[in-house]
């Protein structure tokens, strides 16, 4: 597993970079409607920030900040939300993934679809982020 490498510069750079990357990731997810970006990109960026944490802080510290189980939980729950978003319209008489029939009162038409896309993008972001961290963790376990 990855060992913590004692070096001030790395610590500082890490502590500066990680929040920045995370902020950018959030921006990318949110901005997906209007420009390049979206769930995948944002999710991967967020995962990259966690990976950076893992690399800089070492196992114990980074596991405290982002527990490995959280990764799996994020990945699965993201997909769960996606599925539920897909199934919800069916309860309201629409097709699977038909955001136009999401049972949300007071919203309709294009806005409802916009909302649906937003939910889905976020769930993708969670899922991708979780899985990427999971992949990193699992592969890094192999290092001895």
């Amino acid at each position: 597993m990855i060992e913590r490498y004692e070096n001030v510069i790395i610590d500082i750079v890490c502590s500066v970079m990680v929040p920045l990357i995370q902020l950018f990731a959030l921006y990318v997810v949110v901005h997906g409607h209007y420009g390049p970006g979206g769930g995948f990109q944002g999710g991967v960026l967020f995962a990259v920030s966690i990976i950076l944490l893992r690399l800089c802080l070492g196992k114990e510290a980074s596991h405290k900040k982002f527990p490995p189980k959280l990764a799996a939980a994020l990945a699965a729950s993201g997909m769960l939300v996606y599925m539920l978003t897909g199934l919800a319209p069916m309860a309201a008489g629409g097709a699977f993934l038909d955001y136009g029939h999401l049972p949300i009162p007071g919203v309709s038409g294009a806005e409802l679809r916009f909302l649906g896309i937003t939910i889905v993008e976020w769930s993708i972001a969670f899922s991708v982020c979780g899985t990427m961290v999971l992949l990193f963790d699992v592969l890094a376990e192999g290092m001895r």
């Binding site: 997906g32 970006g37 979206g38 955001y99 679809r113 916009f114 649906g116």
Partner: peptide, 17 residues
Amino acid sequence: TGTPNIVTSVLADYRGY
């Protein structure tokens, strides 16, 4: 869909599956 980024709208809505 009210989404200007066509890739996003196709990705998440038209071909959301």
